[in-house]
Simulated scan of single mutants.
Amino acid sequence: MSKERIYPDFILLNVGHAVHNADWNWKNICSPFARIHLVEDGTARIIREDKTYKLKKDHLYLTPSYINHGYECEGPLSLYYIHIYEEIGTRPGIFDLVDFPVEIEADPLIIQLIKRLAIINPDRELQYYDPGAYDNSPTLIKNIALHKTMPLAFEMEAQGIIKQVFSRFLAQASDKNLDIDERILRSLHYIHTNIDKLINVEDLTAKSFLTKDHFIRLFKKNMGCTPGKYINQKKIEKAQQIIMTRDLSIRDLAYSLGFENISYFNRLFKKITGMSPGSYKKQISLLLSA
């Protein structure tokens, strides 16, 4: 692991216990939040990046955000699930910097803690297990809004449990510096520390001392998307976070993230979230006042 300290801030979205019987079968799931599963009994499989992982009893499974994956279940299965959202900060997220194991064995303490997390958050259970029913912007907004209304004692306990669970994966993780080109790492840090400014691919190219075409190919190889798409995604995620915490006009919101063209910001926001920033802001207000 890198000597640089990483302190991710997670928001609990969902937690609960699920019992399936050959009905946990979904494909092409790619979410802005991470999933942790604790298998209680039964068998199933997680398919991720062309690899298949057979689920084992009393084992934990981590699926980071923005990882395309699916599930296959042909019989009885009972498990606990935790969905966590990493708040956007002024640095790359922990999943950008660290490679985590997919599977680890759960010790008795972690099993009890996960059960406790479900007990103190009964309102975070999924009503439907189809990812299409909960893996969307309105539900994400609602769950983040619920997080902000938690009693302080339960919020502190939930954060402690999440960090305990996550620490087990972190203990067996490895620094992505070995896999990500140093020039791309520098560009990621630049993007996150300048997320409130206009960021051009040309600026990143100049800082990496590469040609533009070479930089774009290298970035896509390391991050799975073009630098432009990554920048836009992180800016809109930051815009969503600002809407939930500050009362800004859409114009000021766009300017605060380096957008000079308000119409372009509106189109990009709707393309990524499925709704306009005005509608998003209105929905947030309704949820927080409910």
Rank of each mutant, 00 (worst) to 15 (best):
I46H: 02
R48P: 00
T63R: 06
A44F: 08
A44I: 06
S78V: 13
Y66C: 10
H69N: 07
T43W: 03
F33W: 15
R35W: 06
P32K: 09
I67W: 06
G75I: 08
E40Y: 03
T63N: 11
I46Q: 00
D50S: 13
L62R: 04
G75N: 12
I46L: 09
L77F: 10
L55R: 03
D58L: 11
D41L: 03
H59L: 02
E49P: 04
D41P: 00
Y66K: 11
Y66L: 10
D41S: 14
L38M: 08
P76M: 11
H59P: 00
E72H: 03
R45K: 13
Y61M: 06
R48S: 11
K56W: 02
E40N: 15
E74I: 12
L60A: 02
D58C: 03
Y53R: 02
L60N: 04
T63S: 14
I36A: 03
I67M: 12
H37T: 07
E74W: 01
I67G: 03
A44Y: 00
S65E: 15
R45W: 12
D41K: 13
Y71S: 15
K56I: 01
Y61W: 04
K56G: 07
E72C: 01
S78I: 13
G70Q: 09
E40L: 15
N68K: 13
V39D: 01
R48E: 11
L77D: 07
H59E: 04
H69R: 12
T52D: 10
T63F: 11
L77K: 07
G42R: 05
P32M: 10
G42L: 09
I46V: 15
Y66R: 12
E72Y: 02
L55P: 00
I46G: 00
G42A: 11
Y71C: 10
K51H: 13
Y66W: 11
F33H: 15
K56V: 04
E74V: 14
E74R: 13
